Computed example of a mutant assay.
Amino acid sequence: MTPTPEDLSTPRTGIAVFGSTNMDHVVYVDHPPARSETVTGHDFRTIPGGKGANQAVAAARAGAREVTMIGAVGNDPHGAALRTALTSSGVDTDSLRTVEGLSGTAHIVVDATGGRAIAVIPGANSTVSALAAGDEAVIASAGTLLLQLELPLPGVTAAAEAARRNDVRTILTPSPAQPLPPELLAVTDLLIPNQIEAQTLTGHTDPHEAAAALLAQVPAVLITLGVHGSLYAARDAEPLLIPAPPVTAVDATGARDAYVGALAVALGEGRTVEEAMNWATAAAALCVQEIGAAPSMPYRAAIDTANEAARLH
C-alpha cells in the first residue's frame, strides 16, 4: 500500500533508523582551503556523527517514544564510543552490529560562517548491504523508518521494502547524492533532499521545478533550502514554503539531520505537515548554533521554546 500525502500526518509513534554511524574528525578554520592550499585551523574535535546516528539522536532528543538504530560499528575504540553516545541519548542499539575492522569516519572542515566540506570513509558501514536477522521485525514495530545513503544501496532498498511490506512510513534523505534506483523510489513515501541534491537528481536549479520533477517518482518531497527554509510538495497539493529564522550559524554539519529527526517525531505524533515543518525548522535553527553533529541535536523543550518564539514573531 502506498501512503498518500495525508498519511504523513497519521499518528504512528516509534522510529527505526537504518543508517550510518561515524566518528567525525572536525577541523575549524577561518576559510576552507582551495585545491593544493594549506590553511591553519584554530580547533579540532572528535565528535560522534553519521547521518543515521545523527537522525536517531535527533529523534530521541525530540521526544520519540522509541528510537532504534540499525547499522554497524567496528570493533575499534570508535565503535565503543559511538555505541555509548547513542545509548546516552536514549537510542536503542540492540540492532547496531559490531563487525571486525574500523568504524566509519567523517573528515569535516568547518569555516567561520558554519559552512562545511565533508569526506566520509565508510568503514563498518560498508558491511550493511542487507538486512540481518531481526531487522525486519524492528522496522515493522516502528511507525517511521529513516534512511540515508551512507550505507550500501542494496541494504537501504531492502530496508525500505521491508517498511512497505509492514505499512511503515519511509523517509529518505538522499545523501550523499547519487542516482536512485527505481525500486528504492517506489517504496519511498517522503524524499528529503537539500537543494544541491535535488538539482543533482533532476537537473533543475529551481527548487519548485525540482520538486515537480521528483513527484513523478515519489508521492511527497521536502527540499531543505538552508537559510531560505524548506519547500514541501505533494501530488495534488499546493506547495508549502516554510521560512527559516535568522540565526548566527556556528556549525551547520548536522542541521538537516536535526530537521529530519524532529520532523519524523512531529509527523509520528499526528501533527500536520505545516506544523511538523515549523517544529523541525526550529530544531535545525538550534542545531546550527552549536558545534558538532550528534551532540548539537536539540532537546524537545528547547525546540518547543524556539518554535513558539518563531510563531510569535
Rank of each mutant, 00 (worst) to 15 (best):
A294L: 14
R65K: 09
T305F: 08
T98N: 08
P32R: 04
G254D: 05
P179N: 05
A62S: 13
G261N: 07
A244C: 07
V247Q: 01
P122R: 00
S9M: 09
T38E: 04
A309G: 06
N54R: 08
R165F: 04
L267Y: 06
P246Q: 07
A210Q: 02
P207W: 11
M297A: 08
H208Q: 14
S175Y: 01
A234W: 07
T2S: 10
P207C: 15
I139N: 00
P207H: 13
G134R: 01
A56E: 06
G52P: 10
D111R: 00
A159D: 04
A284S: 11
A285F: 00
W279P: 07
I108E: 10
L267S: 09
E150T: 02
V128F: 11
E274D: 13
S89D: 15
T173M: 05
D24A: 00
P179S: 03
M297D: 03
P193N: 06
D257R: 01
I108F: 10
L241E: 10
P295N: 01
L8I: 13
P193V: 06
R45N: 06
P176K: 03
A16E: 05
E308R: 10
E6F: 04
P3S: 08
D92M: 11
A285E: 00
D257S: 09
V109M: 08
I291H: 06
H313E: 04
A124C: 09
D167G: 12
L145Q: 10
E150H: 04
D76V: 12
T4P: 00
V156C: 06
H228G: 02
E6R: 04
P3A: 11
A213L: 01
A255D: 10
R164D: 15
D135R: 01
R164Q: 15
S129R: 07
V29L: 13
E37C: 08
G261W: 01
D76N: 08
G268L: 12
G143I: 12
G14Q: 12
L131T: 03
A276F: 12
L263D: 12
A211L: 11
L180T: 09
H313T: 15
A237K: 11
V17P: 00
A163E: 10
H42L: 13
A210Y: 00
R164P: 14
V29M: 06
